[in-house]
């Protein structure tokens, strides 16, 4: 009997200990350099699997009845830099979207020039990494058309978006896409939300739409677009402002 009691006590203690180590251990592991890297490796698997399964499939487009009454803005909602304030005060008449880096033809496009390109309007869902969703109607030019004008060189692999809005740490927001998403037909540079000029809280004068990824990929307040071979040397090196804070570069999940 004594042996059985001891064994039972051991099993019980082992179980309690395992639980405590598991929960406390997760916090400790999160603080190490290596564990987040191991955990992050699953994202590469998710990216590969989801790309193989969905390829160029289109994001669901909704009807006007589905549009959210308010398209909830998140992150920056009113950039304060003097450069941006001056542009906004003039209704963005002097705004130019720079397109450069590894391209044959660097561009500086005004809103009028962008609007003169073939437009696309789509009612798509916007999923925030926090978990909520809103639906809005977007009008803009397909990013692929702008890239076709600029003609990326053979070494270009990523499209980097630089923005006007300064974040808490003083750096400016930025994001990046691979070519599969950059050339997807629903990837837009949008200037209109729900049939009206894009409001400042939602990213005026121009923002990115990538409906098959989460909201933080869809950079607002676009300043310029750079084509690069690698984003390792840009800012924190992870390919975006939130990515530098530990969020996944692939945000399709």
């Amino acid at each position: 009997m004594k042996l059985i009691n001891k064994r039972r006590r051991f099993l019980r203690d082992a179980l309690a200990l395992t639980g405590a180590v598991a929960l406390g251990g997760c916090d400790k592991l999160s603080q190490t350099d290596w564990a987040p890297k191991v955990l992050g490796s699953a994202t590469a698997l998710s990216h590969a699997a989801q790309s193989a399964l969905s390829r160029n499939a289109m994001a669901r487009e909704y009807s006007e009845a589905d549009i959210s009454p308010v398209f909830r803005p998140n992150g920056s909602t009113d950039p304060q830099s003097s450069e941006y304030r001056v542009l906004a005060a003039n209704g963005f008449a002097d705004y130019r979207l720079g397109v450069g880096g590894l391209v044959a033809h660097p561009l500086a496009l005004s809103l009028a020039e962008l609007r003169a390109l073939p437009n696309r309007t789509q009612i798509t869902r916007h999923d925030c990494v926090e978990g909520w969703s809103v639906i809005g109607q977007w009008t803009g030019v397909q990013l692929s058309r702008v890239l076709d004008l600029a003609q990326p060189t053979k070494t270009a692999r990523y499209v980097v978006f630089r923005c006007f809005d300064a974040m808490d740490d003083g750096s400016e927001y930025y994001e990046s896409l691979g070519f599969d998403d950059a050339y997807h037909p629903q990837t837009l540079l949008a200037w209109e939300l729900n049939g009206r000029t894009l409001p400042i809280p939602n990213g005026a004068p121009l923002r990115l739409r990538v409906p098959r990824q989460l909201g933080y990929k869809m950079a607002k307040y676009l300043r310029r677009i750079d084509l690069v071979a690698s984003f390792k040397d840009i800012e924190g090196g992870a390919g975006g402002y939130w990515e530098d804070q530990g969020y996944q570069w692939y945000a399709g999940i």
């Binding site: 929960l23 987040p36 699953a42 994202t43 804070q245 969020y247």
Partner: peptide
Amino acid sequence: TIPGPQWLAMGRAWHFF
């Protein structure tokens, strides 16, 4: 919660792995 403190990015990393 895992991790204990508010840390969405790390929670997602644990979850998807």
